[in-house]
Structures are given as structure tokens and as C-alpha cells.
Design a protein around this nucleic acid. Structure first.
Lengths: 196, 196
DNA sequence: CGAGTTCTTGACTATCTCGTCCAGAACGTA
DNA sequence: TACGTTCTGGACGAGATAGTCAAGAACTCG
């Protein structure tokens, strides 16, 4: 009935995400996104609304992916919960180390830049941190039931601690801290979790 | 011999700092700073150079203050090292909680926004993180000598871990995590430091 | 194949923003 | 007091930037 879109929405969002990721919200020009995606600005505005709406689409999707990925890495039977936790923490450390361009995490960058003034961003990051902590807490509780972590401390508190360490690794990586140091911090964090 | 400056350089830098802090580097207009300080742009450019040079002045000074403040809080005799460490961690948690406007930390914000592309910012944040970790490590080593922390683990690794937790608290605070949760994470971090 | 609808392209506007510049002001010195 | 120097305030210019718009393209259904 009408002319179909000539672009793949997901691919455009992916490219837009890379732009926002690289230059931040304020630092990204709509023309940059248009150039990177090959779309005219009319198509961009027609399909996604203005710059802010486009950013929110990108940010939402990224938050969802991050939460899902974490959940998948952490969920499973109690018997292997401790191993999954260790794998997850080490995977985050490795991803920080591997990010040689120090692009960092889009969530950290966006939250730092926008959460203060942009309620939509603030809401989403609050929700994401909450979800991440829940997944970590569930995994830790499993490890406690399996006897790999001291069941004494509140699992939610330990989950919060691990989340803080992970967010901290992210921040330190962005600040250029050495790979060896990043890895050492991850290992130390795992080592100090109280054994039964 | 010539007309003297009519403004206090330190006060202008302080006001400029607040502007950059509130709206980020890219989001801050030179005109905003001019309006906030009451200076004409001619004076601003004459005294500090361009926007980037002004930002670096502000950022440098802030980094120096942060390192000094941390050093002052953490240095002292071994006997009270453990207490000083606890006080410091709790003080950071309280400052995160008290920041109801979620302005966050200028270093975190600037590093997230600029370190990737601005070598000057990257260098300064790397240096700052290094200094902070050294102060934490020295304090922890003192607590180990005093018998308040297990002397087994490498003090530098524990220092790195605490630094990561502190940076993580900052990030979570920015993300809107509840005050009670922030405090609980700080306490948990202190609690998991291994006792002798 | 024609009509109707949506998409595309890129020129265009209005505003913003950095940095410059200059005329006049303020000060110390001779 | 007159002069030279530096500072001040704000107007100005060049270029950037968000968002709009109109003319034509592409597609489907009748």
C-alpha cells in the first residue's frame, strides 16, 4: 500500500548506539548518525522522532540486553552457582581489559552524563541496577545453599557489594587502570567473599 | 602599571567547576560560564584560554583536591588505620547518599565523557586513581601491621578492591540506588575485609 | 496500470556557540 | 596629571546544529 522502509531498523539503532557510545549524548550530532547510517535526516526523524527519543530507544535496548545477558550468565542450579558467579565477575573484568579504546560501558557513560537531568535515563538505570543486583543476589543465594559461600551474610548485601565492584571495575578501566590490576581486583573480590 | 583583574581567579574557577559539573563538558556553553561568573567572554578567554584549557584547569584542581582529601583522611598511625579506613569508606557512602541532586563526582563524569578522546583528561584520571589506590593501600597495610586486617592478602590488592567499591558506590548513587542500599554495601565491603 | 500512501533525499531555516575584536575603563608610574 | 599597559564588556562573524519541508520515488492494492 505504501513505500516500504529501505533500512533495517535494528541495524540503524545499532549504528546510532555506536555513535552515542563514542561521543556521548550532547557530543553526538544528528548529522553524524545520519552519515553513519546512510539515512537522510528526514528518514531518521520520521522513523524515530527527535534526537532524544532515538537515544532513549538505543538506551532502552542496551539496558535490556545487559540485564538479559547477566541473567543468562548467572542463572542455573545451586551446585554451579559459585562457579557462575566467578565466571561472570571474570568476564566483566576481561571485557573491561579488552576494551582497549576505553569506550567503557554505555550505561555508565549515559548515566553519568544524563541521569541528573533526564528522568527517563535515571529511571532506566535505576531499574537496570536493581535487576543486576537481583540476579547477583539470586546467584549468591544459590552458592550459599550449595555451601560455597558462608550463608551468614545477607545475600542481597553481598550482591550489592559485587555489583559495586563490577561498576567500579568499569570506572577504573575507563580511567586507564592496568589490565593486571583490573584482574587482580576481580580475583580479590571473589576471594574475600566469605567461605562457610 | 596596568589595570588589575577585577575578579578572583579561584572563585571563577569554582563557579566554572559547578557549571561543568552540572552539564558536562560538551553540554556546557562558554556563555553559561560567563553568565554564571559575571565575567565577559573577553576576560574569560584572556585569563584562561579557550574552553578546553579552562576545563583542564578546573579538572586538575579538583583531582588534586580529591587526592589530598583522601590522603588526609587515610594517613596516620597504624593503630588507628582500620578506623580511618572505615571512616573514609563511610564518608564516601554518606557523600553519595547526601548528593540528592545526584550530581555525582566530577571525576567520574568527566572521565566517562572525555577520557576516551581527551588524553589530558585520561592522564589525570589515571594518575588520580593511582594515587587513591596508594593511599588506600598504605592505610590497609597499616591496619595489617596493627593486627586489624589479615596480613596475608596483598595490601595493594585490597586497596584496589576498596577503590573499586568506592567508585562503584559513586556509580550506583548516580543511578539512583537507595541510600540504605548504598550504606549497606559500604558496611558489607568493610565486613568482608579478612580479619586475622 | 493508476491511485493512494508512505518513505527518501537533501536543501533550508532558525538558532546556538565558539572564539575574536575593539573601544573604553582602570590602574601604576613618571 | 598624562601615558602606557592590561582588563572589561559586549557586539560580531563564521560555522555548526536541531529539526522541517517539499518534491519525487517506491510500493501495494484495486
Amino acid at each position: 500500500m505504501a513505500r516500504p522502509r529501505s533500512f533495517d531498523e535494528a541495524a540503524v539503532l545499532h549504528t546510532a548506539r555506536d555513535q552515542f557510545w563514542e561521543t556521548g549524548y550532547a557530543g553526538t550530532k544528528v548529522d553524524d548518525i545520519a552519515a553513519a547510517t546512510g539515512l537522510g535526516k528526514g528518514s531518521l526523524y520520521g522513523a524515530f522522532g527527535d534526537k532524544h527519543a532515538l537515544f532513549l530507544r538505543v538506551f532502552d535496548h542496551y539496558c535490556g540486553e545487559a540485564a538479559d545477558g547477566t541473567r543468562r550468565q548467572l542463572e542455573g542450579p545451586d551446585e554451579t552457582a559459585y562457579r557462575r558467579l566467578g565466571d561472570h565477575v571474570r568476564a566483566i573484568a576481561e571485557s573491561v581489559v579488552a576494551d582497549r579504546a576505553r569506550r567503557g560501558c554505555l550505561i555508565a557513560k549515559s548515566t553519568a552524563e544524563c541521569a541528573e537531568h533526564d528522568e527517563a535515563v535515571a529511571t532506566r538505570s535505576r531499574q537496570l541496577f536493581h535487576d543486576l543486583q537481583e540476579h547477583l543476589t539470586a546467584c549468591i543465594a544459590g552458592a550459599q545453599r550449595a555451601g560455597d559461600i558462608d550463608p551468614g551474610p545477607d545475600a542481597a548485601h553481598l550482591g550489592g557489594l559485587v555489583l559495586a565492584v563490577l561498576r567500579g571495575l568499569e570506572a577504573l578501566g575507563k580511567g586507564g587502570v592496568e589490565p593486571a590490576e583490573i584482574r587482580a581486583i576481580a580475583e580479590t573480590a571473589l576471594a574475600v567473599l566469605p567461605k562457610p
